Amino acid sequence: MKKLIAGAVVAGAMIALTGCQSNQAKQEETKEVADLNNQDLYEVQHEGRHYVFDDFATYQSFLEVGETSYRKVFIGGGPKGETLVFGLTGKDKKKTSGIAGIDMYNGKLEASEAFYGEMRGEDGRLYVFSTLEDMEDVRTVGEAPYRFTQIAAGPQGQTVVYVLNKSNKKKQPVELMAKFKAMNNMK
Rank of each mutant, 00 (worst) to 15 (best):
K171I: 06
Y59N: 05
R49Y: 03
F86G: 09
T159D: 13
L109C: 08
M104K: 06
D40H: 06
N38K: 12
V161R: 08
R49H: 10
A16V: 15
L4Y: 08
K166V: 03
L126S: 14
D35H: 09
T68S: 15
Y59W: 12
K179M: 07
K3V: 06
K80W: 03
Q21T: 04
E113I: 05
G157R: 02
N185T: 01
H50I: 02
H46Y: 14
E136R: 13
K26L: 10
A11G: 12
M104A: 09
V85L: 04
Q39Y: 11
E64D: 12
D55L: 07
N184S: 09
M183Q: 00
S112W: 00
Q172P: 09
K170A: 02
S130W: 15
S112N: 10
R71A: 12
G87T: 04
T149M: 07
A6N: 14
I75K: 13
N165V: 03
E82Q: 12
S69E: 15
A144G: 02
Y51L: 09
G77C: 10
V33G: 00
S61K: 13
I102P: 05
E143T: 05
G19P: 00
Q27Y: 07
G48F: 05
K91M: 04
K31W: 01
G117T: 12
G107K: 04
L88W: 00
A57F: 06
E28H: 13
M177T: 04
L176S: 05
M183K: 03
Y105L: 06
K187R: 09
T89L: 13
G157N: 13
I102A: 03
A57T: 06
E67P: 09
G19I: 05
P79K: 09
N185D: 11
Q45P: 08
F148R: 14
D35P: 00
V33N: 07
Y59T: 09
H46V: 06
A182N: 00
V138Y: 01
P145D: 09
V163A: 13
P145L: 10
D137C: 08
G7C: 07
T68K: 04
R49W: 12
P145Q: 13
A100W: 01
E67V: 00
E32C: 11
I102G: 01
V52S: 03
S22M: 14
K95W: 10
S130C: 15
R147H: 11
F129I: 12
T18I: 14
F115W: 05
M186V: 05
E67Y: 13
N23K: 08
E110F: 03
M104C: 01
N106V: 01
T159E: 07
N185M: 10
V52T: 02
C20M: 02
V138W: 05
M14E: 04
V33P: 03
G157E: 07
M186A: 02
G76T: 08
E47C: 07
R125C: 11
V9A: 15
R147T: 11
Q158A: 10
L88A: 11
G66R: 01
Q21P: 03
M1I: 10
T140G: 15
L84E: 04
K3L: 06
F129T: 06
E64F: 00
S167F: 15
V65L: 11
H46C: 03
L4F: 04
S61G: 15
Q39W: 02
K95Q: 06
K170I: 12
E143A: 12
K94G: 07
N23V: 15
I99C: 03
I75S: 14
G107R: 02
A8H: 04
D40E: 13
D54F: 15
D92K: 08
P145M: 05
V10D: 15
F180I: 05
K166M: 07
